[in-house]
Amino acid sequence: MRKINFWAWFWVILGGLYFFLPLYGTLDFSLREQRGVLSLLAYQNVLNDPRFRDSFTYSALMAVATIVVGMLLIVPTAYWVHLRLPQARPIVEFITLMPFVVPAVVLVFGFIRIYSGPPLALTDTAATANMLLMFGYIVISLPYTYRSVDTGLRAIDVRTLTEAAQSLGAGWFTILFRIIFPNLRVALLSGAFLTFAIVIGEFTLSNLLARPAFGPYMVLLGQDRAYEPAALSIMSFALTWAAIGLIQLLGRGAPEQRQLGGVH
């Protein structure tokens, strides 16, 4: 038994080192902008950069729009499939897995082929290009949000809730927004935090659609600064940690739900 324990500790510690060393290295590096002393100068520079504020605000708003529109699209669909259209389940599930097969760079290539010229020139104006980016984000977060909502729906008795609401005279709108959405809040919040973590630093779509998002800003900064990118990296990590931490906090007591992978 002692031997097994030794190797178990060995691998776990090695894994821990792989996890923490780059973080520690980045943190250390980000504090060394001023020669000889540890300082928060790199963080101050980043936070005082108007381009940081603009691009971060842009991406945060994008994340909120993605979450709201995505949920309005996914929750009624998943609900309807559970309640009335079980025969549509294979097709819907197939669609939600398609983003795994179509990498982001390929997806955006398709967007540009279709939507950068007539008849649907969505990339021509800022508003429609933002809309295109938002729908792209909904697509890449689809596998995670759909699974999250689907697990949530399995955990509640959709049929009984619906019939109870109907017998009290509720219409579909009331059922969806006052019964189903509130009952799914844990699943919805998990999906929302994960979407936020995916969208906030996303680079592929936003860069290739030429949108002023946070990801392209980070790459731009990385090309001419040394310490500020490390500071940004630490801040992004803190955001990821917060998002995933909240998901795990929410998931306590609920049926075990794992989030697999993000967008690289």
Binding site: V12, F29, S233
Partner: peptide, 24 residues
């Protein structure tokens, strides 16, 4: 470990590249 892995598998893209540049 499960928590760390949940975070690490989602920590990717540009910030990850920066972290490795700052480290290695």
């Amino acid at each position: 470990l499960m928590t760390l892995c949940g975070v690490a598998s989602n920590f990717a893209g540009v910030p990850l590249a920066f972290a490795f540049i700052a480290t290695l």
